Simulated assay, not measured.
Amino acid sequence: MTGERLRLMAVHAHPDDESSKGAATTAMYAAHGVDVLVVTCTGGERGDVLNPRYGTVEGGLDGMRAVRVEEMAQAAKALGVRQHWLGFVDSGLPEGDPLPPLPDGCFALQPLEVASAPLVELVREFRPHVVTTYDPSGGYPHPDHIMCHRVAYEAYHAAGDAERYRDRGEPWAPLKLYYNHGFSLARMRAMHEAIVAAGHESPFGDWIDSRQAREIPERTATTFVPCADFFEQRDAALRAHATQIDPDGFFFAIPREIELAQWPTEEFELADSRVPTTVPEDDLFAGIRGTGAA
């Protein structure tokens, strides 16, 4: 591709997901001149306060939404990216046996075309060359993560079809679709072994046991983006989500020197490509740069 700015759209379920999944990659591309737009499907209104130092948030869903809007603005600034709210309401993570019903009107209960229409419109307006989101499992079984996959997959495939979503702008077909692989077992095992070998306590043991116990299938990563120079921006974005992220918790329990030495990349799975490319890749824009395809 010559003469046109590359564009990347990262579609996430809640504010904070953009900072825990592929964040260093988006920060790296933004710093290198790519136009990066983070899309947040819900306001995160039903998220619990997970940082024990934070206290409580008053005002119900509206109060939590207002806090998380401000957190998201600070995280986007730390990453150097733009951000857009899709406008749906968090579904919450149901717990219990049997599971309770999801709340009326929430994101996960929307008809697919209703939930996808604003994203199709945004794809046609922003015209991304690459879209990233979650695999069909959602990465973990949160109803909003699964719905985020469905909506992003639908928008990727439908936005270029002039006969679909006909009132939502001029067609645009993104060239590549990727799934995030931030919490792969391969990464967790490698980090766990390195941390233990260095004499530190690893935060990954329970996670590995839990994933194995639930028999979560391990998907194959195809694309390994070197982005270690942007781990500090990722960490700053995580800390911006103060209601969700404990600064002494899991995300910061990995000694950074071990992470830099053992795992200096972020991984993705190429789910679809409309341009020729060869895996493994080290660039989400492999097959697009310099081709004139965009």
Rank of each mutant, 00 (worst) to 15 (best):
D97Q: 06
P101Q: 08
A286Y: 11
L238K: 03
A186G: 14
V81T: 12
P247I: 11
R211W: 10
G205T: 08
K77M: 11
M72V: 08
M1S: 15
E154I: 04
P111Y: 02
A108V: 02
A261H: 02
A236F: 07
V196H: 09
G199H: 02
E267N: 15
A240K: 01
G139S: 14
V225H: 10
D104H: 05
R68N: 08
V275E: 05
S210V: 14
Q83H: 13
R82E: 09
A237S: 04
F224C: 01
S116Q: 07
E266A: 05
A271R: 00
W85R: 11
A27P: 09
L61M: 13
E170D: 09
D209E: 15
A213S: 07
D283Q: 13
I216T: 13
D272C: 13
R289Q: 13
D248K: 12
S116P: 09
P143D: 03
H84W: 15
T222A: 01
Y165Q: 03
A198R: 13
P111K: 03
K176R: 13
A158F: 06
S20L: 12
D161M: 06
F88G: 00
P174F: 08
P136F: 08
C227G: 10
A293R: 12
Y179V: 05
R53T: 11
F204N: 09
P100H: 03
P128S: 03
P100Q: 05
P111E: 12
H149S: 08
D144K: 01
R7S: 03
L8I: 00
T40C: 08
I245H: 02
G138P: 02
E70S: 15
F204S: 07
E218P: 01
R187A: 04
L119S: 04
M147D: 06
M72W: 10
T2W: 10
F204L: 10
T133K: 00
Y54N: 14
V225P: 08
G59L: 01
E58N: 15
R65N: 07
P136K: 04
I216Y: 03
E4A: 06
H32F: 11
H14F: 09
F230W: 14
D248Q: 13
T2Q: 12
I245F: 03
R214H: 11
L61S: 12
T26A: 05
M1R: 11
T291R: 05
E193M: 02
S116L: 03
D135I: 00
A108D: 10
R68Y: 05
D209G: 11
E125R: 06
T220Q: 03
A73S: 12
I208M: 08
E215Q: 05
V225M: 11
G80E: 03
Y140V: 06
A159E: 02
Y178W: 02
A240G: 00
D248R: 15
L99A: 11
F230K: 10
G43V: 00
A286S: 10
D283W: 11
A197Y: 09
V69P: 03
R256N: 13
M147E: 14
R189Y: 06
A190D: 09
E267Y: 07
A162D: 10
Y140H: 13
G3N: 05
Q212I: 10
I254W: 04
T220I: 12
A162C: 06
R65T: 06
R239K: 14
P264D: 09
P111V: 04
M9C: 13
E259H: 05
T133E: 00
P203F: 05
F230A: 06
A190T: 10
E266T: 09
R164Q: 14
